[in-house]
Design a protein around this nucleic acid. Structure first.
Lengths: 208, 208, 208, 208
DNA sequence: AATGAATGAGAGTTCATTCAT
DNA sequence: CATGAATGAACTCTCATTCAT
């Protein structure tokens, strides 16, 4: 059902991910939904978070640990955009789930946060507060949206990575170099089984 | 009805801006809606665009013409955030309308574009392409969201302005100085009468 | 407005002949309708009757007076079908108006009655009661419907005329000959001005 | 719900067979309708066809097989009119459903077709093409309407049967004799369970 | 766990009709 | 006579949710 939900959200926004549609797409009866999820918000949140989890794991599994933190951030950003482009369904599902459930934003943005935090500790990045993280993440998702909708091309990853580094106070020349260094491809190993269960949501969303 | 719509969207997202609610809030009968708008998407789009039009007009009316373009961009950003904070209803209405109608994004982002374009012509900004504009605008709206939801404080305007300038290739020191220069307050003169009529929407939104 | 109504009914049935559609098609404001008609049933009835009036007048104006009554009936039927085919809009309008307003049936069927009555007085037709008239007329309209929807061809007029004559007890051979005698074309002179005003309807229709 | 629909259509035309009325009459909630039918047109079509199916079965079950085909047609027509008169609700439902959904006409008319076709094969009837069938059926339904609305009496069946035979080229004397021969009563065994499911409709009806 | 008919609130939409201008 | 915004009842349709099987 998570897969069905992702497909539906990707196709036409979270409004289309009706409980009836989800179950129908998953080949189940309507009532079965309630044996697994509390309501629509829950499955939508879970879907988005699962996807992000897998993307994040894929990126991190690609052995970036040893690298310079500046290069690491850029590589993460670029891989994120590559994966996003290779799996538009999941990427759109996340983007649209965020639009639908505002409270998902911090949950989804956090995956990008750790690298920045490390970079700041090392002294490479000028900031690491929540606001900076929020802006950096917004840039990443804005870039993904642009790429997915065909408004920007394969250079998107390098460009936004460079911009992020500039925002983080990295010297422009170094930012440019780091953002354009070749990056190895990453494969996204999709794991159909939900990794996260019972995603908690803020009350204020007010959706049904 | 535009005002009613703005209030409702601000309150709980575009999903709450039901035609029945809109007309009830405006003190009209349900059917009256259709004497003025085709459907919900139309009034939501019109509402968002009207608000942006007024904010934009207010910012530009504040005599920024004579200034250095770098200062001008920073001042525009900061004034946008000030207005946004002073009129949370309208600001939220725009933010949530965008979440609801993806096709609104380019329409709403364009208001920020002109300054960047001028700056690039003068040679102060490194880029002015659509992608850069998209990122710069995303940062602005992400900052507004952060400020409105109380996650960041009065310094938000200056901080995001500085970040934008860095992204645009302005020297960090100059960026810092320009972003922190005092800015005169602007008053938003709200004009109840819609300035834009029959806002056109992309087909693909697929909302009702 | 009568013309507009005819068009709309012909296009999609009387349900589509909304007061708003009628006035819009006629280039008038909605409210203007009520300066001319009491309600929808009235204009629909008037439309159908006007059309029948004109068709009937055209047929009769074609100098059938002198002929043999058997030939006259056949010629009337064939001319009716010719006119019907040449002016599908008006023909469909009548057919669909009947479907919509059952009480219109006797009003519309009466136009065919006079010839049969005369024929019976002369002694050529076996019956002339209301039931026979009803059946004869039904056959005519069924044939018109068949011809208009393309289910039967140019021979329709002669065939149904022959059938009608048989029903009326005319000798089969004579019926065949009379029904297949050449008929002069008739031109339908359309008269935009309504010939009938304030068509009265049975109460039982129960439409709005 | 089929029964409720028949009642409502019979009472005031298909326009009165509102989904709300149908479900209310059937003692169900409005939404339940959509668990069984796609829309109004579907249930109306299904209702009409079910009724015709049962009438047709009743007529044919009455052991007409052995008879002379001329007598058989006449008996079928007369039994149809008898049943029609004994069950005005179902008869009106069919008549009015046809008025509402034009595309139903061929579906409903076909039930009368088989006898005519057989008669033609044997050489008793002059024609058996679609047009003839259409006219013969129209006569039957026109007679039913006349009888149901009280404009003609118990002789209706015999009279229209005789007319049909004349149209089919049967010798007038023989037609008269066959049409007036005594006919055994038939009982209509109503079968509440729909015999037909998912009645397909032409697109062009344009009703909702 | 799975099912799927039943529910009923609520949304969108249409339209006849009124009425002040 | 013409206008057209306003009205509000009526209707179609969707969906989250329940529940007996």
């Amino acid at each position: 059902m998570i897969d069905a939900t992702a497909e539906l959200i990707a196709g036409g926004g979270a409004d289309d991910a009706t409980i009836m549609e989800i179950t129908a797409t998953a080949g189940l009866a309507t009532g079965t939904f309630y044996n697994h999820f509390k309501d629509r918000a829950e499955i939508i949140a879970e879907t988005a978070i699962n996807i992000m989890e897998q993307i994040s794991a894929s990126i991190n599994s690609a052995g970036l640990a040893e690298e310079d933190i500046v290069v690491r951030l850029a590589a993460g950003t670029r891989r994120f955009l590559d994966i996003t482009y290779d799996h538009p369904t999941w990427a759109w599902a996340v983007l649209r789930a965020i639009d639908y459930l505002p409270s998902l934003r911090p949950r989804v943005y956090q995956y990008i946060g750790s690298t920045v935090r490390i970079g700041h500790e090392i002294g490479e990045f000028s900031d690491e507060d929540d606001f900076t993280l929020h802006i950096i993440s917004s840039m990443l998702f804005a870039a993904a949206r642009s790429r997915l909708s065909g408004q920007s091309g394969p250079e998107t990853g390098a460009r936004v990575a460079e911009m992020q580094l500039r925002v983080l106070g990295v010297d422009p020349a170094r930012a440019h170099e780091a953002a354009n260094r070749p990056v190895a491809d990453v494969e996204l190993a999709w794991n159909a089984t939900p990794a996260v269960k019972g995603a908690r949501l803020q009350e204020e969303d007010g959706r049904k």
